[in-house]
């Protein structure tokens, strides 16, 4: 299948003017500006197939938003090439703008003074959506996102979660084939996050749209994306499946043991004790040690021989800690 997004050696360097505090340096700065180059994105390459949902991860300032802005045509790259749906994004051809969307969790594109329903009608006109198609899409989005009770209220009066729902709907009315989502769940409570996630999964399933999303919430990533791209300080660090990431970054297993009787047993000889946040373990009866993946069998048999074990499990480390580790490296 042809790639829908193709990025080759994409780089973006910002020039940032610098000035120290104080009047003296303000005057000097007036005549002679000091510039510093900030390499936001450096030679990033990847490609994405139609219908894929890819998580784009990295700590703050890694270059995620800059990349999304280049792909949606808002930024010119300093060097490198990109094609999305066959278009060069920053040429901003109307037919390209018509076929994609960029939704930013931190930035509103709807007018705050009027109800979302009115902004939707404006979008219908701007994107030249025929009436019947518009009605159908709106009905579908309303069902998926439960929009009916909030469409008539001025956007100003909506809660953060409600606002994100209408922002998403506004960005999807024209049925884009490519979705760039920058922190679509930021600031939302757990249940609102889950609803947005559920919606995105359903939207991807129903329309076959390609989704590239950034998020700080690992739950978003693990629920939606089979594939992740990790960038750090502008450089691509990893591109592949989530499972592969654990294997590469964290070739460890967690051995959990519940001991038969209270005992002052020391687990240190078997591995590094860790305390994963596991919901099923709230009584704290289970203790975990982290061991190299290759030594699991040997260590397990030693533990079984030495300790009064009631229950034993072998688990993968939680993906959150794997990704955190990937950022640190």
């Amino acid at each position: 299948m042809p790639e829908i997004i193709n990025v080759e050696l994409l780089s973006k360097t910002y020039q940032v003017s610098e000035r120290e505090g104080g009047i003296g340096s303000a005057i000097r700065g007036f005549f002679h500006r000091k510039h510093r180059d900030v390499k936001a994105v450096q030679k990033v390459s990847f490609s994405i197939q139609p219908g894929e949902v890819v998580g784009f991860l990295g700590p703050n300032g890694a270059g995620k938003t800059t990349t999304l802005k280049m792909l949606s045509g808002l930024l010119h790259p300093t060097s490198g090439a990109a094609r999305v749906l066959g278009y060069i994004p920053w040429q901003r051809e109307p037919t390209y703008l018509q076929a994609m969307t960029l939704v930013m969790g931190q930035r509103s594109r709807l007018s705050w003074d009027i109800p979302a329903a009115d902004s939707f009608l404006l979008n219908q006109a701007i994107y030249r959506i025929p009436d019947n198609e518009y009605q159908r899409t709106l009905k579908e989005l309303s069902e998926l996102l439960d929009l009916a009770p909030i469409l008539k209220k001025p956007v100003r009066n909506l809660s953060l979660g409600e606002r994100m729902k209408v922002e998403l709907a506004a960005g999807l009315l024209h049925r884009p084939q490519v979705l760039f989502l920058d922190e679509p769940t930021i600031g939302l409570d757990i249940s609102a996050q889950a609803r947005i996630r559920e919606f995105l999964r359903e939207f991807n399933y129903r329309t076959g749209a390609t989704i590239l999303l950034t998020s700080h919430y690992m739950a978003d990533v693990t629920a939606l994306c089979e594939r992740v791209i990790i960038i750090h300080e502008g450089q691509l660090k990893y591109d592949g499946s989530l499972a592969g990431l654990s294997r590469r970054i964290a070739p460890f297993k967690l051995i959990g043991v519940a001991l038969g009787e209270p005992c002052p047993c020391d687990l240190n000889p078997y591995g590094t004790p860790v305390f994963p946040n596991k919901g099923e373990d709230e009584n704290g009866s289970k203790q975990y040690v982290q061991v190299p993946a290759g030594d699991v069998a040997a260590i397990t048999s030693r533990m079984l021989a030495d300790l009064p074990i009631r229950d034993l499990t072998i688990e993968d480390p939680p993906i959150e800690s794997v990704i955190e580790r990937a950022f640190q490296e």
Binding site: K69, S72, G73, T95, L97, Q98, R107, R109, I126, Y127
Partner: peptide, 11 residues
Amino acid sequence: GTLSGDLLRPV
């Protein structure tokens, strides 16, 4: 920078 939102539209 709110112009970004306007630039995403095909008008």
